[in-house]
Amino acid sequence: MTEGNFVDYVKMFVSSGNGGKGSSHLHREKFIEKGGPDGGDGGRGGHVILRGNSNLWTLLHLKFKKHIRAGHGLSGSKSRSFGADGTDEYVDVPLGTVVRDTETNEIIFEITDDGEERIIAQGGKGGLGNWHFRTPTNQTPRYSQPGIPLEEKHITLELKVLADVGLVGFPNAGKSTLLSVVTSAKPKIADYEFTTLKPNLGIVKYRDFQTFVMADIPGIIEGAAEGRGLGHYFLRHIERNSILLFLIPADAPDIKKQYDILLDELRRYNPEMLDKDRIIAISKCDMLDDELKAELKELLDNELPIPYLFISSVAQQGITELKDKLWKMLNS
Protein backbone atom coordinates (compact mmCIF):
# COMPACT_ATOMS: atom_id res chain seq x y z
CA MET A 1 0.00 0.00 0.00
CA THR A 2 1.47 3.37 -0.97
CA GLU A 3 1.68 6.15 1.58
CA GLY A 4 -0.87 8.30 -0.26
CA ASN A 5 -3.45 5.52 -0.14
CA PHE A 6 -3.36 5.22 3.63
CA VAL A 7 -6.34 7.22 4.89
CA ASP A 8 -7.03 6.98 8.62
CA TYR A 9 -9.23 10.02 9.26
CA VAL A 10 -12.56 10.80 7.57
CA LYS A 11 -15.43 13.16 8.41
CA MET A 12 -18.90 12.17 7.22
CA PHE A 13 -22.54 13.24 7.34
CA VAL A 14 -25.00 10.40 7.88
CA SER A 15 -28.77 10.53 7.64
CA SER A 16 -31.27 7.75 8.33
CA GLY A 17 -34.69 7.53 6.67
CA ASN A 18 -38.03 9.01 7.75
CA GLY A 19 -40.63 6.58 9.02
CA GLY A 20 -43.63 6.22 6.71
CA LYS A 21 -46.94 7.64 7.88
CA GLY A 22 -49.85 5.41 8.80
CA SER A 23 -52.98 5.30 6.61
CA SER A 24 -56.38 6.71 7.63
CA HIS A 25 -58.26 4.65 5.04
CA LEU A 26 -61.81 3.35 5.65
CA HIS A 27 -62.85 0.08 4.10
CA ARG A 28 -65.01 0.46 0.99
CA GLU A 29 -66.32 -2.15 -1.45
CA LYS A 30 -69.50 -3.11 -3.25
CA PHE A 31 -72.48 -3.61 -0.91
CA ILE A 32 -70.41 -2.27 2.03
CA GLU A 33 -70.97 1.47 2.24
CA LYS A 34 -69.46 2.16 5.64
CA GLY A 35 -66.72 -0.31 6.40
CA GLY A 36 -64.44 0.03 9.37
CA PRO A 37 -60.90 1.40 9.46
CA ASP A 38 -58.33 -0.62 7.51
CA GLY A 39 -55.38 1.75 7.24
CA GLY A 40 -51.99 0.02 7.39
CA ASP A 41 -48.84 1.08 9.22
CA GLY A 42 -46.02 3.05 7.67
CA GLY A 43 -42.68 1.39 7.03
CA ARG A 44 -39.56 1.93 9.14
CA GLY A 45 -36.96 4.36 7.84
CA GLY A 46 -33.65 2.89 6.81
CA HIS A 47 -30.72 2.73 9.27
CA VAL A 48 -27.15 3.77 8.56
CA ILE A 49 -25.05 0.85 9.81
CA LEU A 50 -21.28 0.63 10.23
CA ARG A 51 -19.91 -2.87 9.66
CA GLY A 52 -16.44 -4.21 10.48
CA ASN A 53 -14.56 -5.72 7.54
CA SER A 54 -11.27 -7.54 8.18
CA ASN A 55 -10.33 -7.22 4.49
CA LEU A 56 -10.01 -3.44 4.76
CA TRP A 57 -6.86 -1.77 6.09
CA THR A 58 -7.69 1.90 5.46
CA LEU A 59 -10.57 4.38 5.11
CA LEU A 60 -9.53 5.21 1.54
CA HIS A 61 -12.84 3.98 0.07
CA LEU A 62 -14.69 6.61 2.16
CA LYS A 63 -12.37 9.51 1.35
CA PHE A 64 -14.73 11.01 -1.24
CA LYS A 65 -17.99 9.54 0.07
CA LYS A 66 -18.88 12.20 2.62
CA HIS A 67 -22.70 11.89 2.62
CA ILE A 68 -24.53 8.66 3.47
CA ARG A 69 -28.34 8.65 3.32
CA ALA A 70 -30.65 5.71 4.01
CA GLY A 71 -34.01 5.22 2.32
CA HIS A 72 -37.32 6.56 3.65
CA GLY A 73 -40.10 4.25 4.82
CA LEU A 74 -43.22 4.23 2.64
CA SER A 75 -46.69 5.14 3.87
CA GLY A 76 -49.26 2.49 4.79
CA SER A 77 -52.29 1.97 2.56
CA LYS A 78 -55.73 0.36 2.52
CA SER A 79 -56.53 -3.22 3.46
CA ARG A 80 -54.07 -2.95 6.33
CA SER A 81 -51.19 -2.95 3.88
CA PHE A 82 -47.96 -1.99 5.56
CA GLY A 83 -45.57 0.42 3.88
CA ALA A 84 -42.19 -0.95 2.82
CA ASP A 85 -39.22 -0.31 5.10
CA GLY A 86 -36.55 2.09 3.89
CA THR A 87 -33.32 0.65 2.55
CA ASP A 88 -30.55 0.33 5.14
CA GLU A 89 -27.17 1.77 4.17
CA TYR A 90 -24.14 -0.30 5.19
CA VAL A 91 -20.73 1.34 5.51
CA ASP A 92 -17.83 -1.12 5.72
CA VAL A 93 -14.91 0.04 7.85
CA PRO A 94 -11.60 -1.60 8.83
CA LEU A 95 -11.22 -3.15 12.26
CA GLY A 96 -9.94 -0.66 14.80
CA THR A 97 -12.16 2.20 13.61
CA VAL A 98 -13.23 4.67 16.30
CA VAL A 99 -16.45 6.61 15.66
CA ARG A 100 -16.73 10.09 17.20
CA ASP A 101 -19.41 12.76 17.27
CA THR A 102 -17.78 15.57 15.28
CA GLU A 103 -19.47 18.33 17.27
CA THR A 104 -18.68 17.05 20.78
CA ASN A 105 -15.63 14.87 19.91
CA GLU A 106 -17.09 12.15 22.16
CA ILE A 107 -16.47 8.51 21.23
CA ILE A 108 -19.75 6.87 20.21
CA PHE A 109 -18.37 3.34 19.74
CA GLU A 110 -15.50 1.34 18.23
CA ILE A 111 -15.56 -1.41 15.61
CA THR A 112 -13.12 -4.20 16.51
CA ASP A 113 -14.64 -7.46 15.20
CA ASP A 114 -15.16 -8.74 11.67
CA GLY A 115 -18.85 -8.60 10.76
CA GLU A 116 -19.71 -6.45 13.78
CA GLU A 117 -22.63 -4.15 12.95
CA ARG A 118 -23.47 -0.94 14.83
CA ILE A 119 -26.28 1.48 13.97
CA ILE A 120 -24.95 5.04 13.79
CA ALA A 121 -28.20 6.68 12.59
CA GLN A 122 -31.49 5.05 13.60
CA GLY A 123 -34.28 5.00 11.02
CA GLY A 124 -37.56 6.63 12.05
CA LYS A 125 -40.32 4.29 13.21
CA GLY A 126 -43.35 4.01 10.93
CA GLY A 127 -46.64 5.53 12.10
CA LEU A 128 -49.63 3.37 13.06
CA GLY A 129 -52.63 3.19 10.75
CA ASN A 130 -56.15 4.07 11.92
CA TRP A 131 -56.96 0.37 12.32
CA HIS A 132 -55.10 0.49 15.66
CA PHE A 133 -57.28 3.29 17.05
CA ARG A 134 -60.75 1.73 16.70
CA THR A 135 -62.69 1.48 19.95
CA PRO A 136 -66.27 0.49 20.86
CA THR A 137 -67.16 4.18 21.05
CA ASN A 138 -65.13 5.30 18.01
CA GLN A 139 -65.45 2.60 15.41
CA THR A 140 -64.32 4.72 12.44
CA PRO A 141 -61.29 6.77 13.53
CA ARG A 142 -60.20 9.05 10.73
CA TYR A 143 -56.72 9.72 12.05
CA SER A 144 -53.39 7.87 12.09
CA GLN A 145 -49.83 8.48 13.24
CA PRO A 146 -47.17 10.25 11.22
CA GLY A 147 -43.80 8.53 10.93
CA ILE A 148 -40.94 9.45 13.27
CA PRO A 149 -38.47 11.80 11.55
CA LEU A 150 -35.00 10.77 10.41
CA GLU A 151 -31.80 11.14 12.43
CA GLU A 152 -28.83 13.16 11.18
CA LYS A 153 -25.27 13.19 12.51
CA HIS A 154 -21.87 14.55 11.66
CA ILE A 155 -19.35 11.85 12.56
CA THR A 156 -15.60 11.40 12.43
CA LEU A 157 -14.02 8.03 11.68
CA GLU A 158 -10.53 7.46 13.08
CA LEU A 159 -8.57 4.34 12.31
CA LYS A 160 -6.27 2.94 14.97
CA VAL A 161 -4.00 0.41 13.31
CA LEU A 162 -4.41 -3.17 14.56
CA ALA A 163 -0.96 -4.76 14.64
CA ASP A 164 0.87 -7.25 16.83
CA VAL A 165 4.09 -5.23 17.02
CA GLY A 166 4.43 -1.45 16.81
CA LEU A 167 7.75 0.23 16.06
CA VAL A 168 8.44 3.22 18.30
CA GLY A 169 11.39 5.56 17.91
CA PHE A 170 12.69 8.99 17.02
CA PRO A 171 12.75 10.10 13.36
CA ASN A 172 15.44 8.43 11.26
CA ALA A 173 15.99 5.60 13.77
CA GLY A 174 15.71 2.93 11.06
CA LYS A 175 12.11 1.80 11.60
CA SER A 176 11.16 1.78 7.91
CA THR A 177 14.39 -0.03 7.00
CA LEU A 178 13.66 -2.75 9.56
CA LEU A 179 10.09 -3.14 8.28
CA SER A 180 11.34 -3.49 4.70
CA VAL A 181 13.79 -6.22 5.80
CA VAL A 182 11.49 -8.39 7.94
CA THR A 183 8.36 -8.00 5.76
CA SER A 184 7.45 -7.53 2.11
CA ALA A 185 6.35 -3.95 2.76
CA LYS A 186 8.02 -1.23 0.71
CA PRO A 187 7.96 1.91 2.89
CA LYS A 188 9.67 5.09 1.77
CA ILE A 189 13.27 5.12 3.04
CA ALA A 190 15.56 8.16 2.96
CA ASP A 191 18.34 9.78 4.99
CA TYR A 192 16.27 12.55 6.56
CA GLU A 193 13.80 12.91 9.42
CA PHE A 194 10.05 12.31 9.00
CA THR A 195 10.47 10.25 5.86
CA THR A 196 7.47 8.26 7.13
CA LEU A 197 4.34 10.40 7.38
CA LYS A 198 1.73 7.63 7.49
CA PRO A 199 1.79 4.24 9.28
CA ASN A 200 3.01 1.30 7.23
CA LEU A 201 1.93 -2.29 7.87
CA GLY A 202 3.84 -5.43 7.01
CA ILE A 203 3.36 -9.15 7.63
CA VAL A 204 6.39 -10.83 9.19
CA LYS A 205 6.84 -14.41 8.01
CA TYR A 206 7.98 -16.69 10.80
CA ARG A 207 8.81 -20.39 10.94
CA ASP A 208 6.28 -23.06 9.85
CA PHE A 209 4.29 -20.53 7.77
CA GLN A 210 3.29 -18.55 10.87
CA THR A 211 2.99 -14.78 10.64
CA PHE A 212 2.44 -11.66 12.69
CA VAL A 213 1.79 -8.02 11.76
CA MET A 214 4.27 -5.21 12.34
CA ALA A 215 3.45 -1.49 12.08
CA ASP A 216 5.92 1.27 11.31
CA ILE A 217 4.71 4.46 13.04
CA PRO A 218 6.02 7.94 12.07
CA GLY A 219 8.84 9.09 14.34
CA ILE A 220 8.09 10.54 17.76
CA ILE A 221 9.62 13.82 18.90
CA GLU A 222 9.70 15.27 22.39
CA GLY A 223 6.38 16.99 23.07
CA ALA A 224 4.39 14.73 20.73
CA ALA A 225 1.80 14.06 23.46
CA GLU A 226 0.94 17.78 23.35
CA GLY A 227 0.64 17.69 19.57
CA ARG A 228 4.17 18.71 18.51
CA GLY A 229 5.36 17.29 15.22
CA LEU A 230 2.69 14.92 13.98
CA GLY A 231 1.43 14.60 17.57
CA HIS A 232 -1.82 12.77 18.16
CA TYR A 233 -2.06 11.99 14.44
CA PHE A 234 0.10 8.89 14.88
CA LEU A 235 0.26 8.24 18.64
CA ARG A 236 -3.24 6.73 18.48
CA HIS A 237 -1.95 3.98 16.19
CA ILE A 238 0.29 2.65 18.96
CA GLU A 239 -2.69 2.06 21.28
CA ARG A 240 -3.73 -1.12 19.43
CA ASN A 241 -0.34 -2.85 19.34
CA SER A 242 0.29 -5.86 21.58
CA ILE A 243 4.05 -5.27 21.80
CA LEU A 244 6.00 -2.03 21.56
CA LEU A 245 9.39 -2.41 19.88
CA PHE A 246 11.54 0.62 20.72
CA LEU A 247 14.13 1.25 18.03
CA ILE A 248 17.14 3.32 19.13
CA PRO A 249 20.24 3.73 16.92
CA ALA A 250 23.59 2.61 18.29
CA ASP A 251 25.10 6.06 17.61
CA ALA A 252 22.56 7.82 19.85
CA PRO A 253 24.25 10.12 22.43
CA ASP A 254 22.37 8.49 25.32
CA ILE A 255 20.33 5.33 24.64
CA LYS A 256 18.73 5.23 28.10
CA LYS A 257 17.69 8.90 27.86
CA GLN A 258 16.11 8.37 24.43
CA TYR A 259 14.15 5.40 25.77
CA ASP A 260 12.96 7.45 28.76
CA ILE A 261 11.79 10.30 26.50
CA LEU A 262 9.87 7.93 24.22
CA LEU A 263 8.28 6.15 27.17
CA ASP A 264 7.31 9.45 28.80
CA GLU A 265 5.57 10.64 25.60
CA LEU A 266 3.52 7.44 25.53
CA ARG A 267 2.68 7.79 29.22
CA ARG A 268 1.51 11.39 28.82
CA TYR A 269 -0.63 10.48 25.82
CA ASN A 270 -2.20 7.39 27.41
CA PRO A 271 -0.87 5.84 30.66
CA GLU A 272 -2.40 2.47 29.69
CA MET A 273 0.31 2.11 27.04
CA LEU A 274 2.81 1.36 29.80
CA ASP A 275 0.97 -1.91 30.47
CA LYS A 276 2.05 -3.30 27.08
CA ASP A 277 5.03 -5.62 26.64
CA ARG A 278 8.13 -3.69 25.59
CA ILE A 279 11.49 -4.55 24.07
CA ILE A 280 14.36 -2.42 22.79
CA ALA A 281 16.29 -3.01 19.56
CA ILE A 282 19.61 -1.18 19.25
CA SER A 283 19.71 -0.53 15.50
CA LYS A 284 22.63 0.24 13.15
CA CYS A 285 24.93 -1.97 15.25
CA ASP A 286 27.02 -2.76 12.14
CA MET A 287 28.78 0.53 12.98
CA LEU A 288 30.13 -1.05 16.19
CA ASP A 289 33.11 -3.38 16.43
CA ASP A 290 33.13 -6.20 18.96
CA GLU A 291 34.95 -4.14 21.59
CA LEU A 292 32.52 -1.21 21.40
CA LYS A 293 29.55 -3.56 21.43
CA ALA A 294 30.88 -5.30 24.59
CA GLU A 295 31.36 -1.96 26.35
CA LEU A 296 27.88 -0.79 25.34
CA LYS A 297 26.35 -4.09 26.45
CA GLU A 298 27.97 -3.81 29.87
CA LEU A 299 26.62 -0.27 30.23
CA LEU A 300 23.08 -1.14 29.06
CA ASP A 301 22.82 -4.22 31.32
CA ASN A 302 22.84 -1.83 34.27
CA GLU A 303 20.73 0.95 32.74
CA LEU A 304 17.89 -0.56 30.71
CA PRO A 305 14.93 -1.99 32.66
CA ILE A 306 13.63 -4.19 29.81
CA PRO A 307 15.14 -6.75 27.38
CA TYR A 308 17.19 -5.44 24.44
CA LEU A 309 18.92 -6.79 21.34
CA PHE A 310 21.53 -5.52 18.90
CA ILE A 311 20.38 -5.53 15.27
CA SER A 312 21.42 -4.21 11.89
CA SER A 313 18.79 -4.17 9.17
CA VAL A 314 21.35 -3.41 6.44
CA ALA A 315 23.83 -6.12 7.50
CA GLN A 316 21.02 -8.55 8.47
CA GLN A 317 22.47 -8.96 11.97
CA GLY A 318 20.24 -10.06 14.84
CA ILE A 319 17.09 -10.15 12.69
CA THR A 320 16.36 -13.85 13.31
CA GLU A 321 16.91 -13.42 17.05
CA LEU A 322 14.53 -10.43 17.03
CA LYS A 323 11.81 -12.44 15.27
CA ASP A 324 12.25 -15.30 17.77
CA LYS A 325 11.98 -12.92 20.71
CA LEU A 326 8.90 -11.15 19.35
CA TRP A 327 7.17 -14.45 18.56
CA LYS A 328 7.90 -15.75 22.05
CA MET A 329 6.50 -12.55 23.61
CA LEU A 330 3.37 -12.70 21.45
CA ASN A 331 2.65 -16.27 22.46
CA SER A 332 3.73 -16.20 26.10
Rank of each mutant, 00 (worst) to 15 (best):
L230A: 02
K284D: 03
A294Q: 11
D8R: 00
L288C: 11
G166T: 07
Y233N: 12
G40F: 02
D275T: 14
T2L: 10
D88E: 09
L235P: 00
R268W: 05
R142F: 07
E29Q: 14
H232F: 00
H132G: 08
P307D: 09
L309I: 11
S242F: 01
E89A: 11
S81P: 00
L178H: 12
K276M: 05
T137V: 03
L245E: 04
A84Q: 08
S15K: 15
T97N: 04
W131S: 09
L292P: 00
H25N: 12
F209T: 06
R278Y: 01
N105D: 14
I155A: 11
P305W: 08
N130P: 07
N18R: 10
L304E: 07
D191S: 15
S79N: 15
D38I: 02
M287P: 00
L179T: 12
M273K: 06
A173H: 07
P136A: 00
F82H: 10
V182G: 07
C285T: 15
L150N: 10
E89Q: 13
N138V: 10
N18I: 05
K30I: 15
N55C: 06
D38L: 04
L288R: 02
T2W: 02
V168C: 08
L56A: 07
E193K: 12
I68Y: 03
L245K: 00
L300T: 03
